[in-house]
Lab assay of single mutants.
Amino acid sequence: KTVHVDGVEYRFNNPEEADKFVKRLVKEKNGNVEVRGDTYHVE
């Protein structure tokens, strides 16, 4: 899984860790998540 945040790319081998990371980011930023294939885009 890959997570894109503000143009920075984070790669996770463990999908659960990627999910936790995304949830935390969305809370912090009050942002939205767009999923494209295996990539999460957080804005």
Rank of each mutant, 00 (worst) to 15 (best):
K1Y: 15
K1N: 07
K1W: 15
K1L: 13
K1F: 15
K1R: 11
K1I: 15
K1T: 15
T2R: 05
T2G: 01
T2P: 03
T2D: 00
T2V: 11
T2N: 04
T2L: 07
T2A: 03
T2Y: 05
T2Q: 02
T2F: 08
T2H: 04
V3R: 00
V3S: 01
V3Q: 00
V3F: 02
V3W: 01
V3A: 00
V3H: 01
V3C: 11
V3N: 00
V3I: 11
V3G: 00
H4L: 14
H4I: 15
H4E: 08
H4K: 13
H4Q: 09
H4G: 01
V5F: 10
V5W: 11
V5H: 07
V5D: 01
V5R: 00
V5P: 00
V5E: 01
D6Q: 02
D6F: 05
D6G: 05
D6T: 01
D6Y: 03
D6R: 02
D6L: 02
D6W: 03
D6P: 00
D6S: 01
G7I: 00
G7R: 00
G7V: 01
G7T: 01
G7F: 00
G7P: 01
G7N: 04
V8M: 05
V8D: 03
V8H: 05
V8A: 02
V8N: 04
V8K: 08
V8L: 05
V8I: 09
E9V: 10
E9N: 01
E9M: 05
E9I: 09
E9D: 06
E9R: 03
E9T: 05
E9W: 06
Y10V: 05
Y10Q: 05
Y10D: 05
Y10N: 03
Y10I: 11
Y10M: 04
Y10A: 02
Y10C: 09
Y10H: 10
Y10S: 06
Y10E: 05
R11W: 14
R11I: 13
R11N: 07
R11M: 06
R11Y: 14
R11L: 10
R11G: 02
R11A: 07
R11H: 14
R11E: 12
R11T: 12
R11S: 12
R11C: 15
F12S: 03
F12W: 01
F12N: 03
F12K: 02
F12E: 05
F12V: 01
F12A: 01
F12Q: 01
F12H: 01
F12I: 02
F12M: 00
N13E: 14
N13W: 02
N13T: 10
N13H: 06
N13F: 05
N13C: 15
N13R: 03
N13P: 10
N13I: 08
N13G: 05
N14K: 01
N14D: 13
N14V: 03
N14Y: 02
N14R: 00
N14S: 14
N14Q: 01
N14C: 13
N14G: 03
N14W: 03
P15Q: 13
P15F: 08
P15G: 08
P15N: 06
P15T: 12
P15W: 12
P15Y: 10
P15E: 14
P15R: 07
E16Y: 04
E16M: 04
E16N: 02
E16G: 05
E16R: 01
E17I: 00
E17H: 00
E17Y: 00
E17R: 00
E17S: 01
E17K: 00
E17A: 03
E17F: 00
E17N: 00
E17V: 00
A18D: 05
A18C: 10
A18G: 02
A18H: 02
A18F: 09
A18P: 01
A18V: 03
D19K: 05
D19W: 10
D19T: 01
D19C: 15
D19A: 03
D19R: 04
D19Y: 11
D19I: 11
D19E: 12
D19S: 01
K20T: 06
K20R: 12
K20V: 04
K20F: 06
K20S: 13
K20A: 15
K20I: 12
F21D: 09
F21M: 03
F21S: 02
F21V: 04
F21I: 03
F21C: 13
V22M: 11
V22D: 07
V22H: 06
V22S: 00
V22A: 06
V22P: 03
V22I: 13
V22C: 14
V22L: 12
K23L: 05
K23I: 04
K23A: 14
K23Q: 13
K23N: 11
K23Y: 00
K23V: 10
K23H: 06
K23P: 07
K23D: 12
K23S: 13
K23R: 06
R24H: 14
R24E: 14
R24S: 14
R24C: 15
R24Q: 14
R24N: 14
R24D: 15
R24A: 15
R24L: 12
R24T: 12
L25V: 07
L25N: 02
L25W: 02
L25M: 10
L25G: 01
L25I: 09
L25S: 04
L25T: 05
L25K: 03
V26Q: 09
V26L: 14
V26E: 09
V26R: 04
V26C: 15
V26N: 06
V26I: 13
V26A: 11
V26T: 07
K27M: 09
K27A: 13
K27F: 09
K27I: 08
K27C: 15
K27R: 11
K27D: 13
K27G: 10
K27H: 09
E28G: 06
E28M: 07
E28N: 05
E28V: 05
E28W: 05
E28K: 05
E28A: 11
E28P: 03
E28D: 07
E28I: 08
K29E: 08
K29W: 15
K29C: 15
K29V: 11
K29F: 15
K29Q: 10
K29L: 15
K29I: 13
K29G: 12
N30P: 04
N30C: 15
N30T: 06
N30G: 14
N30F: 10
N30V: 06
N30L: 07
N30Y: 12
N30H: 10
N30I: 07
N30D: 09
G31H: 13
G31Q: 07
G31A: 13
G31T: 09
G31P: 08
G31I: 12
G31M: 14
G31L: 12
G31W: 12
G31D: 06
G31S: 09
N32C: 15
N32A: 09
N32K: 13
N32H: 13
N32R: 12
N32L: 10
N32P: 04
N32D: 06
N32S: 14
N32M: 12
N32G: 06
N32Q: 10
N32I: 14
V33D: 05
V33S: 09
V33R: 02
V33W: 09
V33E: 07
V33G: 04
V33F: 07
V33L: 12
V33Q: 03
V33I: 07
V33H: 02
V33K: 06
E34Q: 14
E34Y: 08
E34C: 15
E34A: 09
E34F: 09
E34G: 04
E34V: 12
E34I: 14
E34P: 04
E34H: 10
E34W: 08
V35Q: 05
V35D: 03
V35N: 05
V35T: 05
V35R: 05
V35Y: 07
V35L: 07
V35I: 13
R36N: 10
R36Q: 12
R36C: 15
R36I: 14
R36P: 12
G37N: 08
G37W: 12
G37I: 11
G37S: 06
G37F: 11
G37T: 08
G37A: 04
G37H: 07
G37Q: 07
G37Y: 12
D38G: 05
D38Q: 02
D38T: 02
D38I: 02
D38L: 03
D38Y: 01
D38M: 02
D38N: 07
D38C: 08
D38V: 04
D38R: 01
T39L: 07
T39K: 08
T39M: 10
T39A: 10
T39F: 09
T39Y: 10
T39D: 11
T39E: 13
T39H: 12
T39C: 15
Y40D: 07
Y40Q: 11
Y40T: 12
Y40W: 12
Y40V: 14
Y40R: 06
Y40A: 10
Y40N: 08
Y40M: 09
H41I: 15
H41R: 03
H41M: 13
H41K: 07
H41T: 07
H41C: 15
H41Q: 11
H41A: 09
H41F: 15
H41L: 14
H41N: 09
V42T: 10
V42H: 06
V42K: 09
V42D: 12
V42Y: 08
V42I: 11
V42C: 12
V42W: 07
V42E: 11
E43D: 10
E43M: 13
E43K: 09
E43N: 11
E43P: 07
E43G: 10
E43T: 14
E43A: 11
E43L: 12
E43R: 04
